[in-house]
Amino acid sequence: MGDYFVLAISCIFVNNILLAQFLGNCPFLGTSKKMETATGMAMAVVFVLVLAGIITWITDTYLLKPLDIEFLRTLSFILIIASLVQFVEMFLKKSIPALYAGLGIFLPLITTNCAVMGVCLININEEYTFMQSLVSSFTYAVGFGLALILFAGVRERTIIARVPKPLQDTSIGLVTAGMIALSFFAFKGMV
């Protein structure tokens, strides 16, 4: 149990997927201008990442490794993620329309979110067991959400602040992200 707790802390804070591993930065800058879009994106990532983490782990362990075709990992993982996103979208539209209305527009964006593919590959590279992969997928996604929502909060303030012209928009966004990364950096060496 203690091991899982350490893994969770490391995935959320120390190795934060956005601010320490630089995965998923396009939606980080793209969807963080408003709090609502940031929350929607964060929820969608948690949902898809946990499912993708489980399915890619099973595929890799029981299909690619026994058949010795690991060179197809990149191709098969992206296909799994793309079809999973499509499937989740159809399922939500039919069964849980309320949730679909909230997550809908963010789901297609997730296919090309490298955080999802990245965590699936990290799970395999670190040779995690099934339970460890599950915990890491979930906590990496939580870390993603935490950083994204914090960042959106700060960014809403920079929109009304008087920023020098050349620094506006993405430029100040990146500098702000650097400051938030600095605060997460303080967790380094904790685990």
């Binding site: 601010l19 012209k165 050349p166 620094l167 990146l174 500098v175 992200a177 650097g178 990364a181 950096f185």
Partner: peptide, 22 residues
């Protein structure tokens, strides 16, 4: 070379590009 520096450095380079470009 640490993570926060990457963000700040890219942000400042973007600012420089804007200054030269416009």
């Amino acid at each position: 070379v640490e993570a926060p520096g990457a963000f700040v450095c890219l942000g400042l380079m973007l600012c420089l590009m804007n200054l030269i470009g416009k």
